[in-house]
Write a protein that binds this DNA or RNA. Sequence first.
RNA 1: GGAGAGGUGGCCGAGUGGCUUAAGGCGGCGGUUUGCUAAACCGUUGUACGGGCGAAAACCUGUACCCAGGGUUCAAAUCCCUGCCUCUCCGCCA
Length: 426
Amino acid sequence: MLDLGFVRNNLSLVREKMRDRGAAGILGDFDALDAERRKLLSEAEALKAQKNAVSGQIAVLKKQKQDTSALIAEMKEVGQQIQQLDEQAKAADEKLRDLLRRVPNIPHETVPVGRSSEDNKEIRRWGEPRKFNFEPKAHWDLGPALGILDFERAAKIAGARFAVYYGAGAKLERALAQFMLDLHTREHGYTEVFPPFMVNSDSMFGTGQLPKFAEDLFKLEGTDYWLIPTAEVPVTNLFRDEVLEAEKLPVKFCAWTACFRSEAGSYGKDTRGIIRQHQFQKVELVKFAFPENSYDELESLTNNAETVLQRLGLPYRVMALSTGDLGFSSAKTYDLEAWLPSSQEYKEISSCSNFESFQARRANLRFRRGKGGKTELLHTLNGSGLAIGRTWVALLENYQQADGSVLIPEALRPYLDGLERISPQE
RNA sequence: GGAGAGGUGGCCGAGUGGCUUAAGGCGGCGGUUUGCUAAACCGUUGUACGGGCGAAAACCUGUACCCAGGGUUCAAAUCCCUGCCUCUCCGCCA
């Protein structure tokens, strides 16, 4: 959420930034709403001040055994006026707030201006896509052929966009999670967190999923519980309504969780394989940072995620998302895209964002510099480090051999009891 | 699921309708004293949204905030209703 005062004082700038995002009309009649709200507030507060003063007089007069019936009658009337004004003010305030809650973040000045993912800018590449002397298969062929991946039974017990893993496939999923967690906690200074996979509506609001994107989420019927679409939600909300001491910053968490997404609106997209599932696992990196260096933190967070791909020997590129492709809460985002030989393309495997104070304002995440200093809003950042399902896919496809087996990169072998190759299983 | 006890400022903790603009303490900040530190003493203290005020800061001023949302009243931390959360015991359970 943007700051009300900032929007009021920089309205034309904000409108321009929203145009860049492809959300030109989002601010609607902000000025009129804002003016009305302030007018009603002032009127109501003036009457309340009068009422408070007279109520105090009544208390004094009663003590002196004087007649107060005229004053009480008068205040009764004022009370009714206040009630009316309060209702109108509340309605105006709700309208304005509702508007503000649906306005996305302002893109950072370094974000390439563009309409869509077509306009994303490549920042750098790492690794050479391997040359195959045979036709590389897609993971949805490799996995079932190896006996480690099963779509039919997943559809039976759950439905479309689910998968079941067996044997070395299941173990690979687990090994990847552990490998990533170890890397980030041992070498990158993150603290491991294991949060709930369900959260309440307040948390979903805090990170920006609600109120706008409820249809992308799974909700548990008859409750206020939502399945998390990413660990970003529970972890960023850990410090909701808290004030952190500056010495503790930056706070760096990494969390391995399942993630659940309804994928409404992505019908027909990535329908084969495990690229787009209702349930997948992810190791997420989350930072709470000082405002003045949050962009340095974004660079290092992105590097931390890249290290996973480098250790696994998976070629990738880093893309800066354009204004038109940026997520709702993000001011700047780098996507990491891993090379997939079967489709001869780079595919998103991580998304690293700086939200500046956008989430912090919604979730009331603050810090204090030194003792007795003013509280300030934190900057929040997060990025996948990495999406495990998609890493699983990239490994299978990039390390497949002519005979259908899959080599395991060195870095991962300790997590698979030394396994060097996945061969067809019973 | 049943029974009970609770939720008050950064923290502890008083407060059962009106001199409570929330007592007192701790902590923080500023000061006095002091060779330095500590102690003692004095002062001070939160958030949000308005107005003064057509840059910001500071300042002055108003309103709201005692878990949340409603209600009673001229007046609510205090009375009533609903919900949420925490704790204890019982039941069930991994």
